[in-house]
């Protein structure tokens, strides 16, 4: 096999390692027990994505990415975790979030799903000048695992964090295939994320006020 002899260069190796780290934090979010740790993990994940953006900006000389990195630092590493943490402070209930299935089976499932996603994307003809295209496979895995996070954890914090980390996966994908994405568009995405966060926060609060819990187990009245 050819992969045996092909050692990635320093740049590619480091950036892939960062990408894999993002995936690992996603898995950690899936299995971690406390909502707070989950939010912290999200902040860490965003920080890694930010570092990745800076890294690419320096190495591949794409100055626009610096601004993206700054916005992402302010918004995703600081603001969003802070908003969610404040909510958690105010609610003071149920800091442990619940799983619908056991942690090991969830991880195995996520692994399977992630592997499928990675191999599927790997078959596609992508060429990127900013990052190894393997980053795209990894972001696909992040996206798929974030879906599991939303599906199998039944509390509003996990579900919201699942959505935010889905966005991290997409951000990483955009670093791979669309590093030169015009700034206006990129900024629009970020602005949108901010709006989404505010609304998530409002709805989480509404949910908490009505049910005085953060669990979504009770959300089963509407069906059919």
């Amino acid at each position: 096999m050819n992969i045996l002899s092909s050692v990635p260069s320093e740049y590619l190796g480091l950036s892939s390692a960062l990408a894999v780290l993002v995936l690992l934090t996603e898995f950690a979010m899936l299995r971690v027990q406390f909502s707070r740790s989950q939010v912290k993990l999200y902040a860490i994940q965003s920080a890694i994505v930010t570092v990745l953006a800076v890294f690419i900006a320096v190495e591949r000389d794409i100055p626009g990415l610096f601004i993206v990195a700054i916005i992402s630092l302010i918004l995703k590493v600081i603001a969003i975790p802070k908003i969610v943490m404040r909510l958690l402070d105010q609610t003071k209930v149920e800091l442990v979030s619940s799983h619908r299935i056991s942690v090991p089976s969830m991880i195995l499932l996520a692994l399977l799903l992630g592997a499928v996603g990675m191999f599927v994307i790997d078959r596609l003809p992508f060429h990127s000048h900013s990052l190894p295209t393997s980053g795209l496979s990894v972001s696909m895995a992040v996206i798929l695992v974030s879906f599991l996070l939303v599906i199998f954890r039944s509390d509003v914090v996990s579900q919201a964090v699942g959505f935010f980390s889905l966005e991290n996966g997409v951000s990483m994908a955009s670093l791979v295939v669309a590093a030169g994405l015009p700034l206006v568009v990129e900024t629009a995405f970020f602005f949108d994320l901010l709006v989404a966060v505010v609304v998530f926060g409002v709805l989480m609060r509404v949910h908490h006020q009505r049910t005085s819990t953060l669990s979504t187990e009770g959300l089963n009245r509407l069906r059919g």
Binding site: I143, S146, F147, V150, V156, Q159, A160, G162, F163, L166, E167, V170, A196, V199, F200, L203, V206, H207, R210, T211, T216, L219, R221, L222
Partner: peptide
């Protein structure tokens, strides 16, 4: 009902839009 529906809506639709 409204808060349940809103939560489901914003979550599912946002994931879809992701």
């Amino acid at each position: 009902g409204a808060s349940e529906a809103a939560w489901k809506y914003v979550l599912i639709a946002s994931m879809g839009l992701g």
